Simulated scan of single mutants.
Amino acid sequence: MSVENVSATLTVAVPAARVFAVLADPTTHSAIDGTGWVQEAADRAPLTEVGQVFRMDMHHARHPEGDYQVVNKVEVLDSPRAIAWQTGQEKGDGQMEFGGWVWRYDLAPLGPSETEVTLTYDWSAVPWFIRERGIRFPPFGPEHLVNSLHHLAELCHVR
């Protein structure tokens, strides 16, 4: 069986609570994103509970629509240790459909002002009907997670 997730880890010189606060703020996600696909938070409220839904405006040159919107549902919210969300789309009838891929950040305090951050992209729950469409997982290069973690670290220092 093949591994169906990819992770990267970076130590940042800020407290875990500050890192968590940045991650729980959807308005920071475009600045964190290592691909440039995330454009802007359509839902700007901080993430405060499991099951909360937030939307992001996206752009990808190879997406059929170019500009599109994703819907995310918070799966884990354990301040200041972990936060994760599943990504999908809103269908024309208003129903949400999730694709089975999850973004997760695990935070391990290494002291009062240092945190080890692990970002994991997991596509193990992607159903066969989506895989049949020929979507490659992960849909980005290996540098994406590392870039995202460096962007997160920079953002934590300026906030």
Rank of each mutant, 00 (worst) to 15 (best):
K73W: 09
L23N: 09
Y68E: 02
A61L: 15
Q39L: 07
T27C: 11
D33G: 00
V74S: 00
Y68H: 09
P64M: 00
A61V: 11
E75R: 13
G34Y: 02
D43L: 03
K73C: 15
H63T: 03
P80Y: 02
P26I: 05
V71M: 07
H59T: 04
G51P: 06
V74P: 10
L47C: 04
P80A: 03
L23G: 08
P80D: 03
I32S: 05
R81S: 06
T28F: 15
V22Q: 01
A45T: 11
G51K: 08
V76M: 05
T35I: 08
P80E: 04
V53N: 06
L77A: 06
P80T: 05
P64E: 03
V74D: 00
M58A: 03
R55T: 09
H59E: 06
R44C: 05
R55I: 09
A82D: 11
V38A: 00
W37G: 09
A82Y: 11
P80N: 02
N72Q: 10
A82I: 13
N72W: 10
H29P: 12
R44P: 08
E75A: 13
P64K: 00
E75D: 13
D57V: 09
D25G: 07
R55D: 11
G36H: 04
V76P: 06
R44N: 03
F54H: 07
D57P: 15
E40Y: 08
G34A: 02
E65F: 12
T48E: 10
E49H: 14
V71P: 07
L47T: 00
A24S: 11
A82N: 05
H59W: 12
A82L: 09
V76C: 04
I32K: 08
H29C: 03
P46F: 03
Q69R: 10
R81G: 05
Q52A: 07
T28L: 13
F54V: 06
T27E: 10
A42F: 06
E49N: 10
T27G: 03
V53E: 12
H60C: 09
R62M: 14
P26A: 01
T35H: 04
P80C: 04
A42W: 08
T48L: 12
L47S: 00
H29A: 02
H59N: 12
G66S: 08
V70R: 13
A61Y: 12
Q69E: 13
D25T: 15
P64D: 01
F54A: 01
R62N: 13
D33T: 02
D43N: 02
V50M: 06
T35N: 10
D67G: 08
D78E: 12
A61G: 15
K73R: 14
T48C: 04
R44Y: 09
Y68I: 01
P64V: 00
H60T: 01
L23P: 09
P80S: 01
A61C: 08
G36C: 01
H29M: 10
G66R: 03
A31G: 12
H29V: 09
A41M: 01
P64S: 00
G34T: 05
V53T: 11
E75G: 10
G51A: 03
Q69P: 14
Y68W: 13
H59A: 04
T35L: 08
H60I: 09
P64H: 04
